[in-house]
Simulated scan of single mutants.
Amino acid sequence: MAVERSVLNRSFPGLNPITYGDERCDPGHSYGYASREYYLIHYIMSGCGTFARGGVTYSLHRGCMFLIRPGELTFYQADEKTPWEYIWIGFDGALCPSLLRSSGFTDDVCWRDVPQASSLFEELRSIPDRRPSTELSLCSLLYGLFSILCSQDASPRTPRDYVARTSDYIRANYALPISIESIASMLGIDRRYLSRIFLRETGVTPKEFLVRVRLNRAAELLETSSCTVTETARSVGYDDVYNFSKIFKKKYGISPAHYRQRLFSRKTEKDD
């Protein structure tokens, strides 16, 4: 018997729950060959059955989950002797492709054996529907599921991954007294290796990238906020305002004070 629950489509941009429910299937119960507009994951709580996709049939058991992608035609059937019971959740959102890839669901992979996700799906089944919190709770559990799946990925990090992590760390922490040595230590790699692969991937060194991020943000603050030059310098990671002004002038050709004054003059001329 299937128990399907009501979901309000809130159109969350990143990860958006569409449907959820559970079913204790009768022996031989089957479903398939129906196209959907969203991703759908089934998690097998007990029993076993088969899942067919792209001409290949997989025998799945308790602790396995299988993924159906948007527009995909699949077929799945409960075992005649020990029919499965599963919990499902459907979702869409802009983050789905990247989250699924990082979770091991590549184009050639449509199922995973994840027994440690059992308690998470039990929690999912207990989420009451038609509540203001329903969709947020479902979204939280989806992120939890992807966290479990990603933790199983033991593949080595690539240079591109190290570069992406370095770039994101700098964008998030440019206001702090960070160094390339500290970033390399955090990533567990040699500083010279980090500098080499960063330069190869981006065309600039990590230090040059850090300066670029800081100065771009400084220019934004001078344009859009009431921060003084000293406050701007400290906001982007420079305690020495004179050093900040020197570096700023090297990039923009004028001092921070003149930069702001020129913007103010242009605004005044425009208003007149």
Rank of each mutant, 00 (worst) to 15 (best):
R5F: 13
R5N: 12
P13N: 01
L15W: 10
R24E: 01
P27W: 00
Y31S: 14
Y39R: 02
S46V: 02
G55K: 00
T57R: 13
Y58C: 09
H61S: 11
C64R: 01
P70L: 04
L73P: 03
D79E: 04
P83M: 04
I89Y: 01
I89D: 02
A94R: 15
L100C: 05
F105Q: 01
D108L: 13
C110L: 04
R112A: 10
Q116L: 09
L120H: 05
E123Y: 08
E135Q: 01
L136V: 14
S137I: 09
G144Y: 05
Q152W: 14
A154E: 11
P156W: 10
P156A: 09
R157T: 09
Y162I: 01
A164G: 06
T166M: 03
D168F: 08
R171H: 11
S179T: 10
I180N: 08
E181Y: 12
S185V: 15
R191H: 09
R196E: 13
I197Y: 03
F198C: 02
E201G: 10
E201Q: 12
R212H: 12
N216Q: 13
R217L: 03
T228C: 10
R234M: 06
N243A: 13
K249Y: 02
G253M: 05
S255G: 05
R266I: 09
D271R: 15
